[in-house]
Computed example of a mutant assay.
Amino acid sequence: MTTYVLVPGFWLGAWAWEAVAAELRAAGHEVLAVEPGHEPEATAESHVDEVLEALEKAGPAVLVGHSGGGPVCAAAAERARDRVTRLVFVDTGPLPDGVAQIDFNPPGAQEWIRARIAEHGGVQPMPTRAEFAQLGTSTEGLDEETFAEVHARSLAEPAGVILTGARRGTPDASLPKTVVACSFTEAQARELIAAGVPAFAEMAGPEWSFAELPTGHWPMLSEPAALARLLAGLGEPT
């Protein structure tokens, strides 16, 4: 039996993991899904604190972060190394110390995101499907009904979470780390690693592995059973 702590990405709540959690629990595992705070004063650092609190409750666990939750989990794992047995990035990766999620976007997208935040009083609502396409985020695997439901349940992301970065420590090379690649391939990631792109360069270490699950950026919604099986396999002793 393995314990999993699941951290959703931007605009999502713990509900996004419901199908994955059900599959894992049916297989005998323990699951704790984190509910990120969406209060106006929330920041990347406050989200790290929420993950640390969950790890304290869960005990040693496989820590799983999706999308914007990935950099948060990287920082949390460095502060609670004894509580994490494996770090899993679902269609995401770590960011360097203090680098904000917005910095991962090209200049045009950054300008658009900042404008949206200003228009909505300090928060960014979840983009529409067409806006995601313009931003280069894949919604593959989600039919129109599912995307509409997700969009209706989404919560606006506070500016502080998007515009600030988490404080990083020193990555522990003894901690196994896996990237579940959904909207990109391992080959594409390795090209970016070789090029020294900040969000990928850290993945060059021998403790890193890749698992491909081609289904778009939200596998917990488009392929929950497949993602659960993959996570269950990663939870097995190495």
Rank of each mutant, 00 (worst) to 15 (best):
118 A>Y: 09
62 V>H: 14
123 V>I: 10
90 V>A: 01
71 P>G: 02
16 A>W: 05
75 A>Y: 03
35 E>N: 12
105 N>Y: 15
70 G>M: 00
58 A>M: 10
80 A>M: 03
23 E>V: 07
69 G>P: 02
107 P>C: 00
90 V>M: 01
48 V>M: 00
14 A>C: 12
58 A>V: 09
122 G>V: 11
97 D>N: 08
53 E>Q: 14
73 C>G: 01
18 E>S: 03
43 T>P: 08
95 L>K: 02
101 Q>R: 07
93 G>C: 08
56 E>M: 06
43 T>F: 13
55 L>I: 15
82 D>P: 14
94 P>K: 03
77 A>Q: 05
15 W>C: 01
77 A>G: 03
125 P>S: 15
125 P>E: 13
111 E>T: 04
62 V>Y: 14
95 L>R: 02
49 D>A: 14
18 E>T: 09
54 A>S: 10
83 R>K: 10
19 A>T: 08
31 V>A: 06
77 A>E: 04
18 E>R: 05
23 E>W: 14
122 G>K: 15
124 Q>T: 07
61 A>N: 05
70 G>E: 01
18 E>Y: 05
71 P>M: 03
71 P>I: 01
37 G>A: 15
39 E>K: 11
76 A>I: 04
63 L>I: 06
106 P>D: 10
110 Q>P: 07
110 Q>D: 00
23 E>Y: 13
30 E>D: 15
32 L>W: 02
47 H>C: 10
91 D>T: 04
65 G>R: 04
112 W>K: 03
63 L>F: 08
111 E>H: 10
52 L>A: 10
22 A>P: 01
119 E>F: 06
37 G>H: 00
122 G>P: 14
52 L>W: 15
107 P>Q: 12
76 A>V: 08
70 G>V: 00
101 Q>H: 03
19 A>W: 13
83 R>F: 08
74 A>P: 00
98 G>Q: 09
99 V>C: 06
89 F>M: 00
22 A>N: 03
45 E>P: 10
61 A>K: 13
122 G>W: 13
40 P>D: 11
108 G>W: 14
113 I>T: 13
73 C>R: 04
72 V>T: 07
32 L>V: 15
14 A>Q: 12
72 V>L: 02
33 A>E: 06
48 V>W: 04
32 L>G: 02
88 V>W: 03
117 I>F: 13
80 A>K: 12
109 A>M: 15
65 G>T: 04
39 E>W: 09
76 A>Q: 11
26 A>I: 01
71 P>Q: 03
30 E>V: 09
105 N>A: 11
95 L>W: 02
103 D>V: 06
25 R>P: 08
119 E>Y: 00
